[in-house]
């Protein structure tokens, strides 16, 4: 992987994360705590984009699976983020199927049907945007674009890793993310002209 795929600088170093993963696999609870506090906020952001306010519930299910299968996991820090995101995605899709079975519109359908503007996101100016509202704006994109942007930006995966989570080709995920950004920029433009 080239230099361009080295991930976001504000994350815990991949080496450190990989080390925590190794130690947690071996039963080190402190290391697992480190792992949880690093990865949980990202999963929460990603899941907020997928299932809205049910994110905490689905994240708990995700951690349940992570804990159960951690010993069988092999890989470094970036691989762990991808693995956890894959589990989170499956739990989220299960969750959406569950709530769809009930007479209620799933959050994704609801949001893709109605393009969300900055005003919809609470009528706040850009500089007062909260994290949840920013995630809502991204989640309002068509689903493939929203997921690509969330995995890249919030979970901190590179394009190949994000593609693996989504079961798609890296090129397709890159394109989806670019389209998503373009659309977000247009919505921000629209909001600022008003």
């Amino acid at each position: 992987m080239g230099k361009a795929e080295v991930r976001r600088r504000d994350r815990m170093g991949e080496e450190q994360l990989g080390d925590a993963v190794q130690r947690a696999r071996a039963g080190d609870e402190t290391a697992f705590g480190v792992l949880y506090r690093e990865v949980h906020p990202m999963l929460l952001g990603y899941l907020h984009g997928l299932v809205g306010d049910d994110a905490e519930d689905v994240a708990s299910e995700t951690w349940h699976d992570v804990v159960r299968d951690l010993r069988g996991f092999r890989g470094d820090g970036q691989a762990f983020r991808g693995w956890a995101a894959t589990i989170a995605r499956h739990r989220a899709l299960d969750h959406l199927r569950r709530i769809k079975a009930r007479p209620r519109t799933g959050p994704l359908e609801e949001r893709t049907a109605e393009p969300m503007t900055l005003e919809d996101a609470g009528g706040t100016a850009l500089e007062n945007l909260s994290t949840r509202r920013a995630l809502d704006l991204i989640a309002a994109l068509p689903q493939d674009q929203a997921e690509a942007v969330l995995l890249r930006v919030v979970v901190g995966l590179n394009a190949p890793a994000a593609a693996k989570v989504l079961g798609k080709r890296p090129g397709a995920v890159r394109t989806a993310a670019h389209r998503g950004l373009k659309r977000l920029a247009e919505r921000l433009d629209g909001a600022m002209e008003k």
Binding site: R8, D10, G33, Y36, R37, H40, P41, M42, L44, G45, H48, A55, E56, A59, S60, W63, H64, V67, L126, E127, L129, S130, T131, R132, A134, L135, L137, I138, V149, L150, V153, V154, G156, L181, L184, A185, L188
Partner: peptide, 22 residues
Amino acid sequence: LAHLLAVAAAPLPGDPERERAA
């Protein structure tokens, strides 16, 4: 756009109860 993405990537506060459960 960078601002929007940076805000979106800011960590959401987790529920300490759930951390204890994990």
